[in-house]
Amino acid sequence: MHIAMWSGPRNLSTAMMYAFAAREDCAVVDEPFYAAFLQASGEVHPMQDAILASQPTDPSAVVANMLSPAPEGKAVFYQKQMSHHMLPEFPTDWIKELANVFLLRHPARVIASYQQKREEPRLEDIGIKQQCELFARVQSLTGLAPVVIDSDDILADPEKGLKALCAAIGLAFDPKMLTWQAGGNAADGVWASHWYASVWSSTGLKPTPIKPLPALPENLEKICQQAMPFYQHLAQYKLVF
């Protein structure tokens, strides 16, 4: 089974990758289109040169890798995919071959977290608009609405959430998904030292009380309001458990 988890940044996406990496039957890959996105877009991100050197920059080569058998002969190939890395000129027909899941997080939470690492985020940076576009693309290619899950729901009850997710994609739940070793994962991208400090210090997914939405300054609140229609559209489809 090949699983593409489509997310924006700061969406619990790394923790979800760690959860799947904890399964003995699963290989994972971390943001495989990152270098291709940087090369094609001209965007400048932290650790730019290291990222470009670490991955293929040809999106067709990345697609071929994503459709290849899972590394190490594993039965499951989990792909942590960033929706904002999928530029309009990148191929998308291949995604019909995968089990596609869309990982949501309220835009206010995403923006509040993202701006701590990269100032002045734009709507394009947080990936929610691109998630909607990819969601529609999957619907068009398959005739079915793909699975949507909200990170707040996962955090509130990780075991119940992961069980619901696994059931929705036809994968047996493995209790090992709830814990991992602190200190990172061998599959982490080279950018991990800049972005993954909190998940590196974690040892698993534990029930977490959901805090009120953060207050945003006026400039970031505008971005949040731009993002809300996309979030609300996808939230109609999210798993309820």
Rank of each mutant, 00 (worst) to 15 (best):
2 H>E: 03
4 A>T: 14
4 A>R: 12
6 W>V: 05
10 R>T: 01
18 Y>M: 10
20 F>Y: 09
20 F>N: 05
20 F>L: 04
21 A>W: 06
23 R>Q: 06
24 E>K: 15
26 C>R: 00
26 C>M: 00
28 V>I: 04
31 E>L: 05
31 E>P: 13
35 A>L: 03
38 L>K: 09
38 L>W: 09
41 S>W: 10
41 S>T: 04
41 S>E: 05
41 S>A: 06
42 G>H: 12
45 H>D: 13
48 Q>E: 11
50 A>I: 03
50 A>V: 08
51 I>Y: 08
51 I>N: 07
51 I>R: 10
56 P>E: 01
57 T>S: 01
58 D>Q: 07
61 A>W: 08
63 V>Q: 00
64 A>R: 12
64 A>K: 13
65 N>W: 08
68 S>E: 02
75 A>G: 12
79 Q>L: 09
79 Q>E: 11
80 K>Y: 09
86 M>S: 08
89 E>V: 15
90 F>P: 15
91 P>V: 13
94 W>H: 11
95 I>D: 01
98 L>R: 02
99 A>S: 10
100 N>L: 03
104 L>E: 01
105 R>W: 05
106 H>K: 12
108 A>T: 02
109 R>F: 05
110 V>F: 14
111 I>E: 07
111 I>L: 15
113 S>T: 08
114 Y>M: 12
114 Y>R: 13
116 Q>P: 03
118 R>M: 06
119 E>G: 13
119 E>K: 13
119 E>N: 08
121 P>R: 04
121 P>A: 02
123 L>G: 06
127 G>T: 05
129 K>M: 10
134 L>R: 05
134 L>P: 04
137 R>S: 03
139 Q>A: 00
141 L>G: 08
144 L>F: 04
147 V>M: 00
147 V>K: 00
147 V>Y: 00
149 I>P: 05
150 D>P: 12
153 D>A: 15
155 L>H: 14
155 L>E: 13
157 D>G: 07
158 P>D: 03
160 K>M: 12
162 L>N: 10
170 G>A: 00
173 F>A: 04
177 M>W: 07
179 T>F: 13
180 W>T: 07
181 Q>H: 13
184 G>Y: 11
187 A>T: 10
188 D>F: 15
189 G>R: 03
193 S>F: 10
193 S>Y: 10
200 W>S: 04
206 K>I: 08
211 K>E: 12
212 P>Y: 03
213 L>H: 11
216 L>N: 02
219 N>K: 14
220 L>S: 08
227 A>K: 07
228 M>L: 15
230 F>K: 04
230 F>V: 02
232 Q>A: 14
235 A>N: 10
235 A>L: 06
238 K>A: 01
